Computed example of a mutant assay.
Amino acid sequence: MEKLKHVISARQFKDPEFLLWLFESAHQMERDDVFRALTDPLRGRILATLFFEPSTRTRFSFEAAMQKLGGGVLTAENARANSSATKGETISDTIRVVSGYADAIAIRHYEPGTAEAAARISPVPIINAGDGVGEHPTQALADMYTIKKELGRLSGLRVALVGDLLNGRTIHSLLPLLSLYPGVTIDLISPWQLRLPLAYREYLMEKGVAFHEGEKLEGVIEEADVAYITRVQSERFASKDEYDVVKDVYVINAEIADRLKPDAIIMHALPRVNEISPEVDANARAAYFRQAKNGLYIRMALLKYLLA
């Protein structure tokens, strides 16, 4: 695959062999981290994290990844309120300025398409760390890496995607990566108000991926190799009343978790609210905290790929 300059969409990753290489690189990063054998391939390099929406895992994992590789970090945690954006500065001007200080920019923004617009004018790599209800490609890479580590394969899977499929940018990025592998079947489980947008359903049809839509977990969760649970995103609703109608439609408790196959896994990009009960955390199928840590190593591998 031709080397990428920017990471804007999961659809840029079209080669399973490249993904395998990236996952092996992430695994090597993890081994080196455990044995305190990490080198400093990015010494002297700087990553700027521009986050116009809240983040814990994504921002911290990017910053930790850069520092573990020997680089430095410039951070704007709440750039919507604590940057020159409050004075009316355009995102184009912000990118032009920050690219003079940093060797790469990870940006999270509330408007879909912002990362793509930034990449068009940036002389340094832009990494999409989430653009509204658009995409979150590095999370999808971490998700696929997690599935590979946990189950040992990426083909022949039955994957249940549960919850807010309308607004879930993690789901929007995960689908193109799942579509690269043969024998994958996807169950789309959501309230009708939060069903997967038509453009993504058409993409799955174009790629020949088998998928089914429904509103009930029964009969689906028992067959899943991966149950990927998503948060109903309160910040995307026009009113609290609309959110309250759907917020607790799916709650994975201990009883439901035990209905999964013994070797199945439960995933969630976090943060969770009510959709996975804390009692599930002790279940061996609960992979979401391991998933969060995997995000560190996949971002280390990606930063080294882009900058070393």
Rank of each mutant, 00 (worst) to 15 (best):
G152Q: 01
I171C: 12
T56S: 09
Y228M: 12
E150H: 04
T75N: 13
A81Y: 12
L161M: 10
L166H: 05
G72T: 06
K14E: 15
E215V: 09
Y110G: 12
A286Y: 14
P137Y: 09
A64K: 11
L175K: 02
T58A: 08
T39Q: 14
G168V: 00
A301L: 07
E235M: 06
T86N: 06
H109P: 04
E255V: 08
P176T: 13
I121E: 14
A129W: 11
A269S: 14
L196R: 04
K149P: 00
A292S: 12
V251E: 07
G72R: 07
A227R: 05
A37L: 09
L175E: 03
K5F: 15
F18D: 05
Q233P: 10
A210G: 09
Q67D: 05
P197F: 12
L306R: 11
P137L: 03
V226Q: 07
S25L: 15
D33F: 13
G88T: 01
F35T: 07
I127G: 15
I221P: 10
D40A: 09
E275G: 06
P123D: 11
E150M: 09
V209G: 14
L175S: 11
H109R: 02
T114L: 03
G152R: 00
L296C: 09
P123R: 11
S190V: 03
G295Q: 10
E206G: 07
L194W: 01
E222R: 02
G183A: 02
R80C: 00
E218P: 13
Y305T: 03
Y101P: 04
Y200L: 05
M144H: 14
N294H: 08
E202F: 07
S83N: 03
N253A: 04
L178V: 08
N294P: 06
I229R: 02
Y250I: 00
I221C: 05
Q12F: 11
I126W: 05
H172C: 03
N274F: 05
V73H: 12
P137A: 13
G163H: 02
Y250R: 00
S122W: 01
R272I: 01
G183W: 02
A282N: 08
Q28N: 15
Q291F: 02
G70D: 08
M300V: 06
V246Y: 13
P197A: 06
T146E: 10
T230I: 01
A254T: 15
R285Q: 11
L270N: 03
T56I: 03
E116Q: 10
L260I: 01
G168T: 06
P123C: 13
R57P: 05
